[in-house]
Design a protein around this nucleic acid. Structure first.
Lengths: 190, 190
DNA sequence: CCAATAAAGTCTACAGTGTAGCCATACTCG
DNA sequence: CGAGTATGGCTACACTGTAGACTTTATTGG
């Protein structure tokens, strides 16, 4: 399955065999493998569960962020595809509309809405991708052993933080981070 | 060249032919193609120009963010590799040490430093990746034409923002965004 | 200095990939 | 009914990573 293994190890021939048709049939249907992956990514991205816009722009932003994180959780390999074939379907436009509307009602100028909106997007996509790729996972014993080999003179803070990494609460970390961004935005026009 | 074309279109055989050796030679040297790409990504990541830590933690964070963005600008396809083979070399540890030290001197708890530090990383990596992939590019006439086909009832704000997207100043947008995050962090313990 | 050992490089072969080109079949519309 | 068009499938081709055996080169120990 693509959600588990990602684009790597995925081939038209295997897919065709699994669904019992000729490889050329599926290829003709989609034109090329790239186009097939693009369509799959589109389809998966469209399942993001967007919030209805409310009067609380901060809550709206939080909900959009959570929606994309949940999506990444459902399809861990999706965002790789999204970054590769920057697919922007209807669902993307709908969610970016929510983001822009939220930022606009926060009282920002158009330039700020555009810049910060795209940045907010990049942030939640990057965070979701990093999390899905295992970069934000609470460190394993192996990781810890590797960290402990660091030079204590060069990386004292990192070494001191090892317990914090081990006990990392990913949900709390995500909330903290989104809140920090939102707080910074709110403070900008205050 | 890998910086231009990325992992796609890159093959051991082409590389070997370019440098005039047998493909098997390079393969035996690196063990596998994955290992080769990992090593290349390591090497490129190590060229990030880290700042010396100062007494101004906000300036330090800004410098780290800029350093990674510059790196992504030099090697547009690098961060795809980084996310795929989450390579964490010495340079990464050095730069994350800077980030953690900065956040710590901002007065955060260890859990906050760990969570926000990783999030800051994910943010600048995601932003750099998005920018390198062209997601944050000022929109082209084609993009504009596509945007104009959106339903004005569903996406009024997006449509109204088209001029802002056309005139998007990427540097300013990046500074704004990093500042928003930093501001949010600073405000957290105030 | 030479022989033994290890390392590095090279050739061949294999299984797997995307896909162009061509043919058969089915389905639609005048 | 017949012509045209979309759809599915077969073969072939150029390309990939890499396992395995073999040859050359370098290194090291006596």
């Amino acid at each position: 399955m693509l959600s588990r293994d990602g684009e790597i190890g995925f081939s038209i021939r295997k897919l065709a065999q699994r669904i019992g048709v000729d490889p050329m049939t599926v290829l003709h249907h989609f034109g090329s493998k790239d186009e097939l992956l693009r369509r799959i990514a589109d389809r998966a991205l469209a399942t993001v569960e967007l919030p209805l816009t409310s009067t609380d722009w901060q809550a709206d932003l939080r909900k959009v962020a959570e929606a994309y994180r949940n999506l990444a959780h459902r399809h861990p390999r999706l965002f790789h595809l999204h970054f590769r074939y920057h697919t922007t379907g209807p669902a993307d436009h709908a969610s970016s509309e929510v983001v822009y509307r939220a930022l606009q009602s926060a009282g920002l100028t158009d330039a700020e809405v555009a810049g910060l909106g795209l940045a907010f997007y990049a942030f939640i996509l990057g965070y979701s991708l990093a999390e899905a790729e295992g970069l934000l996972r609470p460190i394993s014993p192996d990781d810890e052993a590797e960290l402990r080999t660091l030079d204590p003179l060069a990386c004292p803070v990192t070494l001191a933080l090892i317990p914090a990494f081990k006990g990392l609460d990913r949900n709390a970390a995500f909330d903290m981070s989104v809140n920090a961004f939102i707080e910074g935005v709110a403070r900008r026009n205050a």
